[in-house]
Design a protein around this nucleic acid. Structure first.
Length: 481
RNA sequence: CGCGGGGUAGAGCAGUAGCAGCUCGCCUGGCUCAUAACCAGGAGGUCGUGGGUGCGAAUCCCACCCCCGCAACCA
C-alpha cells in the first residue's frame, strides 16, 4: 500500500465559494477516492487562505475583527464538504497556530540559505482607488479610473525572496519531469516564462499599514506577504516541521490548481521549496476556468453560478456529474443552466436512472431469480479502461466510457426484447440469463461510478445487490423541465 | 515582432493529409420493461478569409481577419 497526497489550492475567503473552486475540489475528490479504491493511503487536503489586505479591508468594512470575519467566511467553504460530498480528511486555515509557526520556520530556512534580503519596494498608488497600480494597469501613466489624480509613488522597505537564483534549478526540474505540470501547454507556458528570466519578489508588508499577516521572524515591523505564508500550507497541512514522520510519508504530492495559479504553484512555490531544502511537488494539475456562454463569470455581469443552489435543487451528484463530464478536466468549459438541464435529463434521468429503473422493474415484475452470472465478481474490462482515463486525468473521458456502457445496455434490451420473452414460459431461462447479465452490468457501472458519483453509485449497488431486487422507491434522477 | 489558446451542423465539441464525425436539440418510424423514457432512420456544415504545396488539405506552408486568457508582487 503506497501513500498518496493530494491538495487543492486554498481559496481566499473574501467571497462566497465559486463554482470554479467547486470544480477544483470535485476533481481532487475523484482522484482521491480513486486512489483509496486502488488501496493507497490517501491524505487529501484543502482549506482557506485568510491573511492579507483584502481580508483586512473586508473586516474593517464590516466593523469586524479580521479573525471573526475570516471565521464567518471560512465556514461557507467548510460547508462545501457536505454539499458536494467531499472526502478530504484535512481542512487547513492559514490562521491556524500550527500553520503560522510553520510559515515562520519556512521563512527562517530560506533566510538561512541567504534567499531573503531587504530592498526598497516602489509601487505606484492611486489614492482614488486606494490601491496599488502595476504598470500594466495604467493608461498613459495614470489610473484609468482616476485620470485626474496623479499617482503617488510609495516607497517602503520590504523583504524580498531571491527567486532569480532558482531559474536554472527550475528549468532543470521541468526538463527532468516533463509531466511536472499537466496539461502540456501549461508546462510549455511555465517553461517559457522561466526562460524569460525571474525577478525577485516581495514577501512582506509593513505592519503599520497592513497588520493582518504572519509576523516576520525577527522583525516586528513587518508581516509576511500573504502568498508566502499561504503556499506553505501544502506542507504545514502534513505536520511540517513538527511531525516529520507524517510529512516524510506523504510529501511530495499532487497539487490541483486553476490556470490563474500556474506561476504560484509550479514556479514560485517550487523555488521556495528548493530554497528551504525540501523536495519539490510531485505534479501540478492545472484545470481551466468555467465560463458562462463563453464569458467570464463576474458579479457585474450577474452570471455567477452558486454551487449550493444546484446542489439544493438537483443533488450533489448531479452537480458533480456536470462539472466532471461537461467541463474538460484540464481545459476551460462552459456552464449554463440550459446545458446543465440537458445533461441532467439526457444522461442522468434518461440514461443512468432510467436503465436502473427498467432493469429492476422487469426483475420484480417477471419474478426473476438473479443467477450466478448476476452475482459474480464485477468484470474488470470497463474498470481497466476507466483506470487508464483517470491516470491520464481525463475524468470527462472516464465518464464517457461509462455512458457508452449504459447505452450498450439500453440497446441490448431493445434488441433482445425481454418483455417478449416474458410472455413465453419456455423462454424463462433465456429471460433469466439476460436479466442476470444486465444486473452484472449495473454492478460494474455502479463500481465504476464510485469515485465520481459516490451516493448514486452506492444506491445502484444497493438496488442490484439486494437479495430480492426491487426498483428504487424514488427514481435516482427524476426528469426535470 | 511580449506569451499562449481558439474560429468545424442551431448549441457545445472531436478530428494533424485518404468518403466530415460525436453529444444535445429538431423531424420521421419502431417498441412498450422503464422517469413521454428506450431503439432505428433522417434533415442540417462552401471546416474564419485569401493564396500556396500535394494525386488528395479541416489537417502542412504563407498572409490576413476575428474571439479569449495571461502580461508576475492585484490572493
Amino acid at each position: 500500500m503506497s501513500k498518496f497526497y493530494i491538495t487543492t489550492t486554498l481559496p481566499y475567503v473574501n467571497a462566497d465559494p465559486h463554482i470554479g473552486f467547486a470544480l477544483e475540489i470535485v476533481q481532487a475528490d475523484v482522484i482521491a477516492r480513486w486512489h483509496r479504491r486502488v488501496g493507497d493511503e490517501v491524505f487529501f487536503n484543502t482549506g482557506t487562505d485568510e491573511h492579507g489586505l483584502k481580508i483586512y479591508r473586508g473586516a474593517q468594512g464590516e466593523g469586524m475583527d479580521p479573525k471573526a470575519y475570516a471565521d464567518l467566511h471560512a465556514a461557507k467553504f467548510e460547508a462545501l464538504k457536505t454539499a458536494l460530498n467531499l472526502s478530504y480528511n484535512n481542512f487547513i486555515r492559514t490562521t491556524d497556530p500550527h500553520h503560522v509557526a510553520a510559515a515562520q520556520e519556512f521563512w527562517r530556512r530560506c533566510a538561512e540559505k541567504g534567499d531573503i534580503y531587504k530592498k526598497n519596494y516602489r509601487i505606484k498608488y492611486c489614492v482614488g482607488c486606494e490601491l496599488e497600480k502595476t504598470e500594466s494597469e495604467l493608461e498613459d501613466g495614470r489610473c484609468p479610473l482616476h485620470p485626474h489624480l496623479a499617482l503617488e509613488q510609495v516607497d517602503e522597505e520590504n523583504y524580498f525572496f531571491r527567486y532569480s537564483r532558482y531559474q536554472d534549478a527550475l528549468l532543470e526540474l521541468y526538463k527532468n519531469n516533463p509531466q511536472f505540470v499537466v496539461p502540456k501547454n501549461r508546462m510549455l507556458e511555465i517553461v517559457k516564462f522561466t526562460e524569460r528570466g525571474l525577478q525577485d519578489f516581495s514577501i512582506s508588508r509593513l505592519k503599520s499599514k497592513m497588520p493582518w499577516g504572519v509576523p516576520v521572524p525577527g522583525d516586528d515591523a513587518q508581516v509576511m506577504y500573504v502568498w508566502f505564508d499561504a503556499l506553505v500550507n501544502y506542507i504545514s497541512a502534513l505536520g511540517w516541521p513538527d511531525d516529520l514522520q507524517k510529512f516524510n510519508a506523504f510529501w511530495p504530492g499532487v497539487q490541483v490548481a486553476g490556470k490563474d495559479n500556474l506561476r504560484q504553484q509550479s514556479s514560485m512555490w517550487q523555488a521556495m521549496l528548493l530554497s528551504a531544502g525540501l523536495p519539490p511537488s510531485t505534479q501540478i494539475l492545472i484545470h481551466g476556468f468555467i465560463t458562462s456562454r463563453g464569458q467570464k463569470m463576474s458579479k457585474s455581469l450577474g452570471n455567477v453560478v452558486s454551487p449550493f443552489e444546484y446542489v439544493e435543487k438537483f443533488g450533489a451528484d448531479a452537480l458533480r456529474y456536470y462539472l466532471l463530464r461537461e467541463i474538460p478536466t484540464l481545459d476551460d468549459g462552459d456552464f449554463t443552466h440550459e446545458q446543465f438541464l440537458a445533461r441532467y435529463n439526457a444522461d442522468l434521468a434518461n440514461g443512468l436512472g432510467n436503465l436502473v429503473q427498467r432493469v429492476s422493474t422487469m426483475i420484480a415484475k417477471y419474478s426473476i431469480n438473479v443467477g450466478a452470472n448476476g452475482r459474480s465478481p464485477v468484470q474488470s474490462v470497463l474498470r481497466k479502461e476507466i483506470d487508464n482515463c483517470i491516470q491520464r486525468y481525463q475524468l470527462d473521458q472516464a465518464l464517457a466510457v461509462i455512458w457508452e456502457k449504459i447505452a450498450a445496455c439500453d440497446k441490448r434490451i431493445d434488441n433482445e426484447k425481454p418483455w417478449a420473452l416474458a410472455k413465453d414460459t419456455s423462454q424463462h431461462e433465456k429471460l433469466e440469463a439476460l436479466l442476470s447479465s444486465l444486473v452484472a452490468d449495473l454492478r460494474e457501472i455502479g463500481v465504476a461510478l464510485l469515485p465520481f458519483l459516490p451516493c448514486t453509485a452506492e444506491s445502484i449497488l444497493k438496488v442490484v445487490g439486494a437479495e430480492k431486487i426491487v426498483p428504487p422507491a424514488k427514481p435516482l434522477f427524476p426528469r426535470e423541465t
